[in-house]
Design a protein around this nucleic acid. Sequence first.
DNA 1: CACATGTCAGTGTTACTGACATAA
DNA 2: CTTATGTCAGTATCACTGACATGT
Lengths: 164, 164
Amino acid sequence: MTDRVDSALEAWSDERPDLDLSGAAVVNRIRRAATLIEERISALITRHEVRNPGDFDTMVALRRVGEPYELSPKQLGEQLLVTSAGLSGRLDRLEAAGMLARRPHPFDRRAVIVSLTQRGQELIDEVHAETLDLYEIALAGLESGDRQRLADLLRVMLLDLGDT
Amino acid sequence: MTDRVDSALEAWSDERPDLDLSGAAVVNRIRRAATLIEERISALITRHEVRNPGDFDTMVALRRVGEPYELSPKQLGEQLLVTSAGLSGRLDRLEAAGMLARRPHPFDRRAVIVSLTQRGQELIDEVHAETLDLYEIALAGLESGDRQRLADLLRVMLLDLGDT
DNA sequence: CACATGTCAGTGTTACTGACATAA
DNA sequence: CTTATGTCAGTATCACTGACATGT
């Protein structure tokens, strides 16, 4: 069986037979797989009242710290690599959707504490479960040993790409 | 050695030890690798007068058809999955940058023929060569057999994801 | 006074929707 | 008249920059 990357590379090698495309065969598959998975995740998220992937990531960051699911906008911005103003906008949307709450910091009156609401926690866990299901669909054709091999090969790549 | 996906999954399994994250270990690496590669490609493109990845893809579509590197906006839009108005904007930018030219269709006076200029062709080939170099860097840690294995495993995934 | 935190207003980017001019 | 092609104007989305209010 041939996938779309096979077809695309074939078209290229007709046009440029001088090039070695073995690297492209790997990297383009990675890019294509990421695109397809992201499409599905995006569709999945959209079904859950939080349209924007960035907003969703913001909730994930809060969920990941564990009880009591609280961070300052400052900390969130650093984790998410978003400017303070950009983050402010995300928080506005998420607060309006009832996914998180802002309250004043008890001692530092400049600061704010952002916390995931009950509803926000539930949504994250729900989406997360659905995401794992989606991954299982994507990996259905690979047995456990294949998965491990794939993960190991990809780790080598990531380390080469400077993923600390 | 551990990459960022290892760290992230470890944090998650602290918080949710009930979940099986072996699928996430694979898929998140694919997503992360795609992100890192796309960052580098984006940086590479930006150095070449065509800032926007979509504009670049438009040029690639023209390059790929081979001599004389011509398509109609209609055909381009279908290939690139962009609306006609959206494509029109891309063509405006690329034409202004001297990368392509529009001329009237000889018989159909509604239609237009878009062609890659000499400069556009050179730019595509240059960027393409640099992209292949970039892929080599990403794959430096994998020998030829590993690459083949990786490509094969990813093909299985893509076919499962419905990549025709 | 210098620095930190968070928000707001205005801007830039890019593609979309819907309307339109022209032609087949 | 219906359909096709391409363009234009206006809109939406989202984050950024820079300015600002407040507080340490």
